[in-house]
Design a protein around this nucleic acid. Sequence first.
DNA 1: TAAACTAGTTTATAAAATAAACCAAATTAT
DNA 2: ATAATTTGGTTTATTTTATAAACTAGTTTA
Lengths: 94, 94
Amino acid sequence: MLKKLDPLLHSELRLAIMSLLITLEKTEFTYIKEQTEATAGNLSVQITKLENAGYLIVKKGFKGKMPQTTCSITKQGREAFEKYVADLKDYLKL
Amino acid sequence: MLKKLDPLLHSELRLAIMSLLITLEKTEFTYIKEQTEATAGNLSVQITKLENAGYLIVKKGFKGKMPQTTCSITKQGREAFEKYVADLKDYLKL
DNA sequence: TAAACTAGTTTATAAAATAAACCAAATTAT
DNA sequence: ATAATTTGGTTTATTTTATAAACTAGTTTA
């Protein structure tokens, strides 16, 4: 029987965000925006969802005088990602 | 850069349907319903979407006196599934 | 022959994704 | 100096999607 996929990760943009974070460990909002080609609004919403789930943490500071938001993945987020990959493999026949 | 995922396949239920069809080649509606634990209504809707996209074909007949709907994957469906798997691998770091 | 079940479809509702509008401050041009 | 533009976002509204509820048509069982 196929496992239920984590609905929080089964979203193209959120998966892309997590995919970046899993290799980069710490990433700026603007960089994620560039890489994913998402709109800022959409990105903001999806990052907040991942934050609320405890999959990443958001730090707000400044780079020079400009505001800067950085995200980093949590242990919980990493584990959720790995579980998602494992669950999905059954669907993909991998 | 991450590839855009086929939105038709990036749906848990539709992916489960395609996942069944890709190995079984021909499958009854009722069997898909059992395996996926989806409601009949939801399943009917999602099968129609896959049919409209040309990813599967639906045949209606009878098993004894009872109506029977069977689905089978098309070449196009198989190719779309394979492309989806390939695209998704980048997200999953596989 | 009435009640319950099978095999679905259609339609309505809930949830999710996305875009549009907005805000505050910084930078650039006049 | 100040007006216009850009940066870095958030909030809210709209669209899309997923899901569930209600319905249809016929069959089997009591």
